[in-house]
């Protein structure tokens, strides 16, 4: 696309990423959580994918593997749920010792965000590639 669109996408990308990570990490205190944070991060990546030409996008995507990240995050969620059931971790002792950290909700938010963001980036990349 144009030079204006490319430069604007490159400038806006870290701010969009920071906003998405902020919504995810404060998921247990403010409205938000895993799903909106993942969508916002995916929007930041999708802006970069659409603004640049196809050869450069393909060259970048050969080095990052999004499907591996998605599989690791999915396995992480499964592990967390099994862990929580086995130790019955939503009991008072964990919350009082960790203070403002959200117990088991915080890692679940992070894994959910990684899964949603990688799914949407894979979908946008597949639409562009054809």
């Amino acid at each position: 696309m144009d030079t204006i669109v490319k430069t604007t996408a490159r400038i806006m990308f870290p701010f969009i990423l920071m906003y998405g990570i902020y919504i995810t990490l404060h998921g247990h205190l403010t409205p938000g959580g895993g799903f909106p944070g993942g969508v916002i991060i995916a929007t930041g990546f999708a802006l970069l994918i659409i603004a640049h030409k196809e050869s450069r996008v393909e060259h970048t995507f050969r080095q990052i593997s999004f499907i591996d990240a998605k599989s690791i995050a999915g396995f992480g969620i499964l592990l967390l749920i099994m862990f929580g059931i086995f130790f019955r971790l939503n009991i008072i002792q964990v919350e009082k010792s960790l203070g403002i950290l959200g117990g088991l909700t915080l890692p679940s938010n992070i894994f959910g965000t990684i899964m949603v963001a990688t799914t949407l980036v894979i979908i946008v990349y597949s639409i562009i590639k054809e």
């Binding site: 247990h28 959580g33 939503n90 008072i92 919350e95 117990g103 679940s108």
Partner: peptide, 23 residues
């Protein structure tokens, strides 16, 4: 708040009380 440690009730329902549906 006391069973999950998160002040956001929607989040605690989605990721803790009903986490099988999220899975």
């Amino acid at each position: 708040l006391e069973k999950t440690g998160s002040a956001n009730i929607v989040n605690s329902i989605v990721w803790d009380f009903r986490s099988y549906d999220t899975l």
